[in-house]
Design a binder for these strands. Structure first.
Lengths: 179, 179, 179, 179
DNA sequence: TATGAATGAGTGTTCATTCAT
DNA sequence: AATGAATGAACACTCATTCAT
């Protein structure tokens, strides 16, 4: 968040790079070269490094964007009536759209960068998810001894499992339900 | 299983390299350099490449070794009396000792190499696991609509989840139990 | 002939690398290392590979440059009056200045790359040489049963012979003259 | 020429290595690896290095063997009646069987090793060739102003030319004949 | 004497990052 | 602000040579 807002074209470049980077990392893994991203984004390599001074910072930004998307989804579901549906819709939705995102998440988790993510956004996600979870637990749809932390871990795990062997998510989500 | 058995010292080197590679890949990820492995194993870089002519072949060998270990554990549990305990002991044990193995598995899965693993060993694992599963299902300890494929996917997923957030495995295994 | 013309400094570097490569290959043979070329050209190794993405492409470029030079010489002689002098001047001139070029030519011939040379340039050389030859034959200065192919083979051979034992070229060229 | 004659099996190994090396260098060029030669010769790499302590010494030995063969051919032709036929038979024969030998000769010439060849053998070749040449000149079949040195250079050149473009050797040999 | 495992300097090539234009 | 040429450390891999078996 720079003090001075970016010039319009600079902002457009930044967005295009971010978007391209997400696609490229998803397609080729996080070892994809920065040049490849620049090429596909239609900008010079120097421009990428002007916006994101290291490759790691680009990865972080991509992850932050991903988390922002999740936070928005969770936020949106806060308005739903049925707490059970809200919670499981979120869970299933995330997992099903996660394939492309795994590569990024893995690399970042491995690099210990995950926790470094812009904490405001992460906090928003965590808060929204906490509310979804609490309500679902209150409605008796989710075991009481589960916390946000566990849910997030299961999200990652389920994403991985689905990538490995397409399977009914019910096998995993049933573990969340009360005995 | 080379045609001619290796000389004693060569075999020792091969084992040391394999063991070191497992540790290094676990610690630094599969992008760790071959030189680093050679250094820690206390051998020259040429020796690593004599035993494993490409880095990928080294990764494969490490994975094969891992799978061999799992197959042995599963085999050993085939002799147990209690089918429920046998199955869940295996599941939990694998996940708990899996941290180190995740990096390797991921890389190989990504490279599509996983299936190329010495199929005899993989077959042995699959067979033993199938038996453990069947017996547990017969004893009413595991849902009937679960197959070996799903169990393996859940193993990977659970390993990943535990790595992410230490948590009671019960959350995951309960998904396997009958409703 | 790149689509977009190189920046002035980049073009200068490219030329310097090409020129250095010709000298180095001539002096040390084509197994000379790319690093050595970079060092002598006063550029980083990365710069060499930016301009010539493989060592083979660098070899090809050097050869193409050589062929271009020959084609220019042959072209220039097309304007001469005396067909006999024109032909033999070309032949002798090429051989006498060829010492340095042998290493490159050999390697390329060996790699079967020779024919892959930018065919426009090679064609120009072949065409000019054909004219020189024809005129010389018409003037009774060269045997009629000789073709361009034979002349080129003799050029290579004579270059090699001269490198081996400095000798009067007359011994070789006399083979071209009518009985 | 070791003081003590080699044991029978050692001598057999030496010969096999030499013969294999000639074939391998001819087929793959002199950059063929020593291991490849050992493999094809059916001996261990250590055995190759016991007989020829460096790769260069192996190249030298191969060349010496080649020269020995030529010397024998020249010697044999000393008994012939027709001096013209004797000389040109030698010349043509050498060139025609030379294809395989070029790689070796080139490498050695390039390395300045050529002159280091076992001078006894080289001397024998030179002497026999001198006699063949003298007689042919005496019989009026070869120009008088040509020396052994020039003939050898032309042999190399012609071998090269033939490799490049199969052509009638007459084009080259006619340069040797009197005007 | 023969073997082949071990060695490590050297090679071609890639890529994150810097900087002149 | 944008570009892309330049840089050089790092990597996977090769190979002549040495040495323990």
């Amino acid at each position: 968040m720079p003090a001075r807002p970016l010039r319009a074209d600079a902002a457009r470049n930044r967005a295009k790079i971010l978007q391209t980077a997400e696609a490229v990392f998803a397609e080729l893994g996080t070892s994809a070269s920065t040049e490849e991203i620049a090429r596909r984004a239609g900008v010079g390599i120097g421009t990428v490094f002007r916006h994101f001074p290291t490759k790691e910072s680009l990865l972080e930004a991509v992850l932050a964007e991903l988390v922002r998307g999740l936070a928005e989804e969770a936020d949106a579901l806060l308005a739903a009536d049925d707490p059970e549906a809200a919670f499981f819709t979120f869970f299933t939705g995330v997992v099903q759209r996660s394939t492309a995102k795994n590569a990024v998440m893995q690399a970042l988790a491995a690099a210990g960068v995950a926790t470094a993510t812009d904490s405001d956004t992460a906090g928003r996600l965590r808060a929204a998810l906490a509310t979804l979870l609490e309500r679902a637990q209150h409605a008796g749809a989710v075991r009481a001894d589960i916390g946000v932390r566990e849910v997030m871990a299961l999200l990652v795990a389920a994403s991985r499992a689905v990538e490995e062997a397409p399977m009914s998510l019910e096998v995993i989500t049933s573990g969340l339900r009360p005995a």
